[in-house]
Amino acid sequence: MNSTFTLLVVDDEKQNRTLLTELLQDDYQIVLAKNGVQALEKARQHLPDLILLDVLMPQTDGFTVMRALKAGDDTRHIPVIFVSALDSAADEELGLELGAVDYIAKPFHPPIVRVRVRNHLQAVHQRRLLEQLALIDGLTEVPNRRRFAEVYAREWRRCMRSSSPLSLIMVDVDHFKVFNDTYGHAAGDIVLKRVAQTIQDALNRPADFVARYGGEEFVVVLPDIDADRAQVVAEKLRAEVERLHIPYPQPGASQWLTISLGGASQIPKQADVDDRLFIDADTSLYAAKHDGRNRVLWANAHLPGS
């Protein structure tokens, strides 16, 4: 853990804010708020990793702030430690029932506060690592199908708002079963990793995205790219994989292992994802494989703005 973690310290007494800042500023980035209204504003603005929240504050007390945090989609998952002069068991019970991860009574012992903050941030760190691992394909180390669904929906909505095209490419490794049956699954796994890395390296823009969809299939999301430009990208992916010169066990149309790609483009018109874009891309992939493999086919490529 390091200073990339951000803490929001909320207390109406300047002395307490100063004490907590001096205690924690060497290890974390500190954001300060002196009342409940400021606390909610800065929580939404900074989305801190942890909040140290006083209870007794004028106008909007800490318990009210906590309820508002839990009601917000962006803030409900931020862990909160109450730091309060209210030290009865009933107050502590209420704070924990509202969703706080800890309750520290004033006057507090600085070393105890430091250790508790560190422990809770360690839990945050570990949870995020697990969340990231849950979205990565264990074999190829590119994002998995679950992550694709999240990114696809997000980019769909963003392109809808900006009236921008969204392009989708389905990719399939040609005759992969034959490759697996000839060389074994261990060799097949190595090939899938190389193909995945090659596709990922060939995508130039930060917004371009590739995921393993399943088996030997991958899916590529290209926001803000129309059909003509997306086909150029798809052809680049096809050529880069063929350029790996992975020997194919049964030479046919190509001496080397190849991929087939099918794509589609659309300007989203609604908030909910339209399944037709994915279906069109998948249908184009099927057609590319039926027409001889190692090629790119695009749905409705003749239509302007498609």
Rank of each mutant, 00 (worst) to 15 (best):
E97K: 09
E97Q: 14
L98I: 09
L98Q: 12
L98T: 15
G99L: 07
V101I: 15
D102H: 08
D102Y: 04
Y103D: 11
Y103R: 02
I104P: 11
A105W: 00
A105D: 04
A105S: 15
A105R: 02
K106P: 10
K106F: 08
K106V: 07
F108H: 06
F108C: 02
P110C: 04
P110S: 05
P111D: 04
R114L: 04
R116W: 14
R116F: 12
V117Y: 06
V117L: 11
V117A: 10
V117S: 05
V117M: 05
R118S: 12
N119V: 01
N119E: 03
N119M: 06
H120Y: 11
L121P: 11
Q122S: 11
Q122G: 14
A123H: 14
A123K: 13
V124H: 13
V124P: 05
H125G: 08
H125K: 14
Q126D: 13
R127I: 05
R128A: 14
R128S: 14
R128T: 14
L129P: 01
L129N: 13
E131I: 12
Q132Y: 05
L133S: 00
L133Y: 13
A134H: 02
A134Q: 03
L135N: 09
D137F: 09
G138S: 09
G138T: 10
L139P: 00
L139D: 04
T140L: 08
T140Q: 08
V142M: 10
P143V: 11
P143Q: 05
P143G: 07
R145V: 06
R146G: 08
R147G: 02
R147A: 12
F148V: 11
F148R: 01
E150Y: 04
V151R: 15
V151W: 07
Y152W: 15
Y152C: 14
Y152R: 12
Y152T: 06
A153I: 00
A153D: 13
R154M: 15
R154G: 12
E155D: 10
W156K: 01
W156R: 01
R158M: 09
R158W: 13
R158F: 12
R158A: 14
M160P: 02
R161D: 07
S162M: 14
S163G: 06
S164R: 14
S164C: 11
P165K: 03
L166V: 07
L166E: 03
S167R: 03
S167G: 02
S167K: 09
S167T: 12
I169E: 01
V171N: 06
V171A: 04
D172M: 10
D174H: 01
D174Q: 09
D174T: 03
H175M: 03
F176R: 04
F176G: 13
K177I: 07
K177H: 04
V178M: 12
V178Q: 15
V178W: 09
V178L: 15
F179Y: 15
N180A: 03
N180K: 06
N180D: 00
D181H: 04
D181W: 10
D181Y: 05
T182S: 15
Y183T: 07
A187P: 00
G188T: 14
D189M: 06
D189Y: 10
I190E: 15
V191K: 15
V191P: 14
